[in-house]
């Protein structure tokens, strides 16, 4: 089946079998191997990407379902000049990754939450919801929580200085 996907701002026309998962098409057909596959059961969240702005499990969505959708993967987070995204800087500053396997998934769930809610920094429960969405075997989660909160604060400060 012919589908059109916009991935990180670039349009792609692909011919895919209906049985193929979004995660496999991103990785194998588009070479975007930043989207990791851990469990393929919707549990670990390593495969999380943004579909029309919302975080989804790329292992529980068929690629054909995304026909006409706009997708963002971890490769699309950094700026065009390679400048890391505020979340990426915060993850580095807070030591929120060790082996890094889970990191793309956490970054994308957090990016979706940050874009949907400019006041995320004031909502520890919402941050806990993001942290609790995915599995990390290394960090113990606390540094990830700190990193997301840090990026949320920076985002809010940046937008309030803009307003001034």
């Amino acid at each position: 089946m012919k589908i059109t996907l916009e991935v990180n701002g670039t349009a792609h026309t692909l011919d895919v079998e209906p049985r193929r998962l979004l995660a496999d098409v991103l990785r194998d057909d588009l070479g975007l191997t930043g989207t990791h596959l851990g469990c393929e059961h919707g549990i670990c969240g390593a495969c999380s990407v943004l579909m029309d702005g919302e975080a989804v499990r790329a292992c529980l969505v068929l690629a054909v379902q995304c026909d006409g959708s706009s997708l963002r993967t971890v490769e699309g987070l950094a700026g065009p000049d390679g400048e890391p995204h505020p979340l990426q800087r915060a993850f580095s500053a807070e030591h929120a990754l060790q082996c890094g396997f889970c990191t793309p998934g956490f970054l994308m769930v957090a990016a979706g939450a940050l874009e949907a809610d400019p006041d995320l920094a004031d909502k520890p429960d919402a941050v806990a919801g993001v942290v609790g969405s995915n599995i990390c075997r290394c960090t113990g989660y606390e540094p990830i929580r700190r990193a997301i909160t840090r990026a949320a604060r920076e985002q809010r400060e940046a937008s309030s200085t803009h307003e001034r």
């Binding site: 919707g42 999380s48 919302e54 989804v56 529980l60 919801g129 969405s133």
Partner: peptide, 9 residues
């Protein structure tokens, strides 16, 4: 019910 990325679909 599961967690936010599951609940959004």
């Amino acid at each position: 019910i599961a967690h936010p990325p599951i609940r959004s679909r």
